[in-house]
Write a protein that binds this DNA or RNA. Structure first.
Lengths: 234, 234
DNA sequence: ATCTGATTTTGACATCGATCAAATCCGTGC
DNA sequence: GCACGGATTTGATCGATGTCAAAATCAGAT
């Protein structure tokens, strides 16, 4: 008896693609047997349409999440109501897991940025599991470590690089390693990419047009690079 | 047989103040008995004068550290050689512990920003301990969680607030909660505070002078606030 | 294929913060 | 108390990015 209203969040069975994503997260990829079963039983699946709130800053943190498909925006508001994205979560990313032992309230808002399916983990249940099962504790550590490293990279990136450099970085991380021509396709709207890089959408657009003179062509979601090596030089 | 050359790093016994700081870190505060003893045996004490390198980006990560006294600057360089601080570590802060399970190379440079004493933990030894002792794994999780939260706050702060707002935030976090007048003393040079807030030293100075009209007076390292409540309003 | 609304781009402008240089301040050692 | 050197402040300027408005483009629905 699945929910069919596409507005509603609902408990669904995992489809194959979502299951594959879930099993490759740092959280679950190293687990097996009993630990895996117990983690799965602390989990439920939630589907949401675009622009739905997952939680709000200050609310009681009784679950953390893993993105299975779609995208999630984590953001804060300043006094004037201006929003700033802190992180964009893609399939495979976990968020709010730092509250397992880091506090009891959510520290930011979370909202879908597309139709999105999430794995929802009960915070207290996983807390208990981490105390009991050694490999679950280790999985938590691995996940937190990776997450901390990317967040520190984000700070460094913000403070060290200009908009065109950040965009070039983003493109290069998704290009083949050798130096020739390449073509990639953005998996989401430019809007989101802007937030991911800490830019206003207009600034992203201008960064792309700055990169044109370095051989970067943008048409819709498709980005073509004439010479990957040349792009590396700034 | 202590080292006496003040240029040298050396293995020293913990003095009482340093020991107290160490025991209050998220890493050790929850440990007792055997776990504590084993952690302490994976640790050594290192003393360095100002501006000494602790490790460099790209080096093999065979230890992580906890600041006992003094300050440590974590920073990266861009292509032109400009430095950007990623984090300033104060007494009680741990750094590079995310490499326990997050990679094998240091991701940034670490350098003392004052005469500094560090607790040095052997990475592999702690890795092994975390697998064996449940409470050590939990301590690692707690430490990583707190660290991740402050780093995400840092991103949000950078993206959301102007220089004077960040300075006001810093001051307010160190003021009494009630609204009256207050006075605080910076524990380090303004240089470091600038790095901590992601600002050039000149920008910090100008932020202070902007805050003068909100009743903030700066003389040397002493900051006086006429009305804490007023400062909260931006 | 066309229409319509949302997304993206472009333009004009304001603001913030970085940079460089010079002046001033402060703390330390004598 | 004084002199020195490093730290901080101030001034002038520049470049980068945010903001607002309008034009252009894209994508989904009819």
């Amino acid at each position: 008896m699945e929910e069919t209203t596409d507005m509603m969040n609902s408990n669904l069975k995992l489809n194959n693609r979502d299951r594959a994503v879930l099993m490759k997260t740092p959280f679950l990829t190293s687990l097996s047997g009993n630990s895996l079963v117990r983690m799965m039983s602390a989990m439920s699946v939630v589907s949401l349409t675009n622009r739905k709130s997952i939680f709000r800053e200050g609310e009681n943190a009784d679950a953390f999440f893993c993105v299975l498909s779609g995208y999630v925006r984590l953001y804060q508001l300043n006094r004037d109501g201006r929003e700033a994205d802190i992180r964009i979560c893609s399939p495979g990313d976990t968020f709010a897991e730092c509250l397992l032992y880091g506090g009891t309230k959510y520290r930011y808002h979370a909202q879908t940025a597309e139709a999105t399916t999430l794995a929802r983990f009960d915070m207290q249940a996983v807390r208990d599991l981490a105390e009991q099962e050694r490999d679950i504790a280790k999985a938590v550590i691995t996940s937190l470590s990776k997450h901390l490293i990317t967040t520190m990279d984000c700070v460094a990136n913000d403070r060290l690089h200009t908009a065109p450099q950040r965009v070039a970085d983003y493109i290069l991380k998704r290009c083949p390693v050798d130096g020739g021509p390449a073509s990639i396709r953005l998996p989401f709207q430019k809007n989101l990419l802007a937030g991911m890089l800490g830019l206003a959408p207009e600034a992203l657009s201008r960064a792309f047009s700055t990169l044109r003179r370095t051989g970067v062509t943008v048409r819709g979601r498709v980005i073509q690079v004439v010479d990957v090596q040349a792009l590396r030089e700034i």
